[in-house]
Every structure is written in C-alpha cells, then in structure tokens.
Design a binder for these strands. Structure first.
Length: 220
DNA sequence: ACGAAGATCACCT
DNA sequence: GGTGATCTTCGTG
C-alpha cells in the first residue's frame, strides 16, 4: 500500500476527539483517511449515533446485544454491521469505554488504490460513485465482518488516520440523517459541501407489506 | 421456533 | 420513482 504523510501528534489528537462526545467526533472525522485492502479514502460524509435510550435511530437504543457490542467498546475501534442480507457498513466507535456511540462512515473520495476500488465496484458509473454510500464504501475498501471490533488507530488491516488538511467549518454542512425512521429533526449528518462523493439525501420510506400499503399509517 | 424489519443498492420503467 | 434481492438480528410466543 502507498505510504502517506502522518503526524503522530495529530493521531493522538484524533484519539482524544474520538474519546469524547459523538457529534464533535463525527464532524472531526470529515477529511480523515481510511485505508483497507489497498485503497484509501478521504472521508466526505458521516453520521453520528448516540447510545442507549438517547437516540431512537441508534443500534444501541435498546441496550447491548451481541450485534452492537462493539459500540460499547473503546473509541477508535470498528463497529461493522451487516444489513439487508448483503451489505456491510462501518462505524468508528466513540466515547468512553462502556458507553455506546459511533460514527457511521457514509462516503469518501478514493485517493489511492483507484484500480483496486474500481475492480471491487464494477457497478460504479463514475469514480465519484466508488465509495458513495456506506455499503459502497465498505465494498470499495473490502471491509467486512473481519474488521469487527478492530482498533482503527493501530497498525491493523483497517486504518483511520487524521486529515492531511483540516476541513474548515464553512465547507461543512449538517442535516438530518439518511435512512432512519425517526429523529428527522436531529441534524447529525455531516458532509463536505458540494463534494461529488456525498450521497444524496432521501427520506426513509419504511418497507410496507401489500396489506398495509392500502391502509393509512398514523403520523406521530 | 417464527416472523418482521432493517443506518442499502442496483436495476427497471 | 419504484421495487426486488437476500439474510441476520432480535423480539415475541
């Protein structure tokens, strides 16, 4: 894999940031670099998820289960989940050990390993689509269950490193999270404004069975 | 043991 | 803009 400049002090600051509250941690991950499987992406879009009884959209909302256990672990480790029978998604765990919170990495710009990413993402119509969306990003990086619980700040197969250049506040936008059924008023999605790799916002439409489709659904 | 839903994507019209 | 794919996870009985 190609080497890139890296400052130890910045890595230490990143570790401190991840150990704190999830929302600033999410914001701070914009511009950071994620490497796996010979591909490096610059993170362009993230979402914050809080812990038990705080965030109805969080996988940890109903407490600890075998699936979400990594969310309760130390900051800087990976929480990987499998969904819709076919997709992997990657989160960076945040906050103190024992408390559940994590940042979903939703999109990135491929900066090294372009050929490798393209070969893993044959369906991508453009390079901007290679890691546009959380499952596509994992596919481009070759991330799957084997990354579950691993430390991303060490020398493992999946590595998170600080941004080469900080992303300034004017370049950052915030809005509702994508694909969650509730909490549409909470602007915990952060992205780099105007970046072509950021996924389009779509309001979540719950899957309805045919019998339910004809029936009116009560609004909150 | 069973069923329903899911932090999505690709492909169709 | 709509829908099928595909299977794990967890709540309930």
């Amino acid at each position: 894999m190609e080497a890139y400049p890296e400052a130890v002090d910045d890595l230490a600051r990143l570790a401190v940031l991840l150990g704190g509250p999830v929302v600033p941690a999410a914001r701070g991950l914009l511009g950071a670099r994620l490497s796996a499987g010979g591909v490096t992406v610059r993170i362009t879009e993230v979402e914050a998820y809080a812990g038990t009884a705080q965030d109805p959209a969080s996988h940890a909302h109903r407490g600890r289960t075998p699936r979400n256990a990594a969310m309760f672990g130390p900051a800087g480790h990976a929480y990987v989940y499998f969904t819709y029978g076919m997709h992997w998604c990657l989160n960076v765990v945040t906050g103190p050990d024992g408390e559940a919170s994590a940042v979903l990495v939703r999109a990135g710009e491929v900066v090294t390993g372009l050929a490798q990413a393209r070969s893993r993402r044959r369906a991508a119509r453009s390079d901007g689509d290679l890691a546009r969306g959380p499952a596509r990003l994992c596919a481009a990086l070759g991330v799957d269950r084997s990354a579950y619980g691993r430390n991303l700040l060490g020398d493992g197969p999946v590595r998170l490193r600080p941004a080469l250049e900080p992303v300034p506040d004017p370049a950052v936008a915030a809005g509702p999270r994508v694909g969650v059924t509730g909490a549409h008023d909470v602007p915990w999605r952060f992205w780099i404004t105007g970046d072509p790799t950021v996924s389009a916002y779509r309001r979540h439409v719950p899957r309805r069975r045919a019998a339910e489709a004809a029936r009116p659904v009560a609004e909150t």
